[in-house]
């Protein structure tokens, strides 16, 4: 049996053999390419679907939010803090020198309009949601937000001031569609 296989595999005509080798390489290449392409739909199906993508922006009406109040809106499944800051809070945020910051960033760079602070309410340490949105909640030592999981303190600009979190609360992309409407994402 082995002998007949050998006979089949090793042809006396070397020209014939090289032609088969070429065909073998070409077919394997195309077949392998096909396998790889066929895997793509299966993988891509795990990416966000159209309904998920359709909800990737959120429009927020700011008109009912009084000075000193905050609301939490859901954007891409995450909480977004929208705070109507008082003059005091803005003053406090802007009077800090960069040397005191773990993640130096000026308040001006974090807001488009001084009285509206908009940021993703997810602690940059391990993903908990900081407290401080409601007046009854602890705001931490810097009057902003306080993460109860591991004790990170954020200031009135949402910057990390104390505790294990490495970065300031993230600011999402947003645009003001008019004076009282903002589109996040």
């Amino acid at each position: 049996m082995v002998s007949s296989a050998d006979a089949a595999l090793s042809t006396s005509d070397s020209d014939e053999k090289s032609r088969r080798d070429f065909l073998l390489v070409a077919t394997s290449t195309i077949g392998g390419l096909g396998m790889a392409l066929a895997a793509w739909p299966l993988i891509h199906s795990m990416n966000p679907a159209k309904d998920t993508l359709a909800l990737s922006t959120t429009e927020v009406d700011l008109s009912p939010i009084e000075k000193g109040q905050s609301i939490t809106v859901v954007w891409q499944g995450k909480p977004v803090f929208v705070r109507h800051r008082t003059a005091d809070e803005i003053e406090q945020a802007r009077s800090v020198s960069n040397d005191d910051l773990a993640d130096p960033e000026s308040d001006e760079d974090r807001v488009q309009k001084a009285e509206w602070l908009i940021m993703v309410g997810v602690c940059t340490h391990l993903g908990c949601i900081p407290l401080g949105q409601k007046s009854s909640e602890p705001k931490g030592e810097f009057g902003g937000w306080f993460c109860p999981c591991h004790g990170s303190h954020y200031d009135t600009s949402g910057r990390i001031r104390k505790g294990p979190a490495p970065k300031n609360l993230a600011v999402p992309g947003y645009v003001f569609l008019d004076d009282t409407t903002v589109k996040i994402g």
Partner: peptide, 11 residues
């Protein structure tokens, strides 16, 4: 691809 596989099979 099937045409190539057939050619290879014949060979």
């Amino acid at each position: 691809l099937t045409g190539m596989l057939y050619g290879l099979k014949r060979k």
